[in-house]
Simulated scan of single mutants.
Amino acid sequence: MLTEKLLKTIQPASINVIDSSIKKSDYIPIDLSKNNNDLLQFDVSSSSAWEKYINDYLKSNQKELAYGGYLETRNLYDRSSYFNTVSKENQRNIHIGLDLWCPANTNVLAAFNGVVHSFNNNTNFGDYGPTIILKHQIDNFSFYTLYGHLSINSLEKLAKGKEVKQGEVIAQLGTAEVNGDYAPHLHFQIIIDIEEKEGDYPGVCSLKDLDFYTKNTIDPKLVLGLD
């Protein structure tokens, strides 16, 4: 299985997707699920209110980066018709990547050696904004990493097939104006089968599709040594 092979091959402590000058001892988990009553205290449809909440959380805990969200059910997506549907069964509100919350313009790093698979500016309200997908191979296994909510400049001078090295700066985090209207953060996702998608892949799914996406993604916390 790819998950087991990947975890045996890598050294999680040495893998970073955010500027490595931010030590992992300065990371802190954050709960943004529908069960967090703190989220009832501010307007969750406002990216500036989210940014204040995240910044206050980091300051009160004396940390630099907040992370979490893999398989977390969130009310955050209720604000966007891109995720909302008439049918509750098809409502997409389960997050299937890892969010790393820190300031705009922070450097984003390649998790592994690989090549640029595709990139796109996904401009739906609540979407990724600028997004890069890298393709990697370990022995005979191919897999993909997705980096969402980037700056516009991050897509400049990219080309499909361009080689990247583990730890190389590939992008910077975008502001709310360009990143889908969120507080600045990186959506990092590890995907086994990209399903012929280009520059985009679902980062939020419905309960109906959860079994498929649980099997087709890997919990990024395991790879980054955050568990």
Rank of each mutant, 00 (worst) to 15 (best):
L2D: 09
T3N: 13
T3R: 15
E4W: 01
K5C: 10
K5T: 14
L6D: 09
T9R: 14
P12V: 12
P12H: 14
S14A: 12
S14I: 06
N16W: 00
V17Q: 09
I18F: 06
D19H: 03
D19I: 00
S21A: 07
I22A: 05
K24I: 03
S25P: 01
Y27V: 03
I30G: 06
S33P: 13
S33A: 10
K34T: 02
N35K: 15
N37T: 11
N37E: 13
N37L: 15
D38A: 10
L40E: 14
S45I: 01
S48W: 04
A49V: 00
Y53G: 02
D56T: 07
Y57E: 13
N61Y: 02
L65A: 12
A66N: 13
G68V: 06
G68P: 11
Y70L: 01
L71D: 00
T73L: 04
N75M: 09
D78W: 08
S81M: 03
T85Y: 03
S87D: 12
S87I: 07
E89C: 10
E89V: 12
Q91V: 00
N93W: 00
N93Q: 10
I96Q: 09
G97V: 01
G97H: 05
L98F: 03
C102M: 11
C102F: 06
C102N: 13
C102D: 09
P103D: 14
P103Y: 05
T106N: 14
A110W: 03
N113K: 08
V115M: 02
V116K: 11
H117E: 15
F119C: 11
F119R: 05
N120H: 05
N121I: 05
N122M: 07
G126A: 08
Y128T: 14
Y128G: 10
G129Q: 12
P130I: 14
T131G: 02
I132M: 10
Q137M: 11
Q137D: 04
Q137Y: 00
I138T: 13
F141N: 14
S142H: 08
S142I: 05
T145Q: 11
G148I: 01
H149G: 05
L155D: 03
L155F: 04
L155A: 05
A159N: 07
K160T: 09
K160I: 15
G161L: 03
K162F: 03
V164A: 13
V164F: 15
V169Y: 03
I170K: 15
Q172G: 09
G174S: 15
T175I: 02
E177I: 14
N179C: 06
D181M: 10
D181Q: 12
Y182A: 04
A183F: 05
I191R: 09
I192H: 09
I194A: 06
K197H: 15
E198L: 13
E198A: 08
G199S: 07
P202Y: 06
P202E: 11
V204L: 08
C205L: 00
S206P: 00
S206D: 01
D209V: 07
L210Y: 06
F212M: 07
Y213R: 08
K215F: 02
N216Q: 12
N216A: 06
I218S: 07
D219C: 11
D219T: 06
P220C: 08
K221G: 02
V223D: 06
D227N: 15
